[in-house]
């Protein structure tokens, strides 16, 4: 059985990761894997999209890939 609730997909958690270092969408999705949050793939994508729109992080291209980044 998946251990849901082990990791929570919240605005605060996303903010903390992006403040620490720039991340791609894939990096973020890796932090909030469905098997760790208990969310469905669709819910993960929707919630993460809403959080990113709200946080409005800086966009940086690093090594050809778009990264999101937040200042403290």
């Amino acid at each position: 059985t998946p251990s849901s609730g082990e990791v929570q997909l919240t605005e605060e958690a996303v903010r903390r990761y992006l403040t620490r270092k720039p991340m791609t969408t894939k990096d973020l999705l890796k932090k909030f894997q469905t098997k760790r949050t208990g969310l469905s793939s669709d819910a993960t994508v929707n919630v993460l999209a809403q959080i990113l729109k709200r946080l409005n992080p800086e966009r940086k291209v690093i090594g050809d890939k778009m990264h999101f980044s937040l200042k403290e």
Binding site: T24, T25, K26, L29, K30, S41, T44, V45, N46, L48, A49, L52, K53, R59, M66
Partner: peptide, 20 residues
């Protein structure tokens, strides 16, 4: 071959399209 992670990243980027 695209993994589930790739599909989710693509979906997320599509969702953020006008934003990115």
């Amino acid at each position: 071959s695209s993994s589930e992670a790739d599909e989710m990243a693509a979906a997320l980027e599509a969702e953020l399209n006008d934003f990115m």
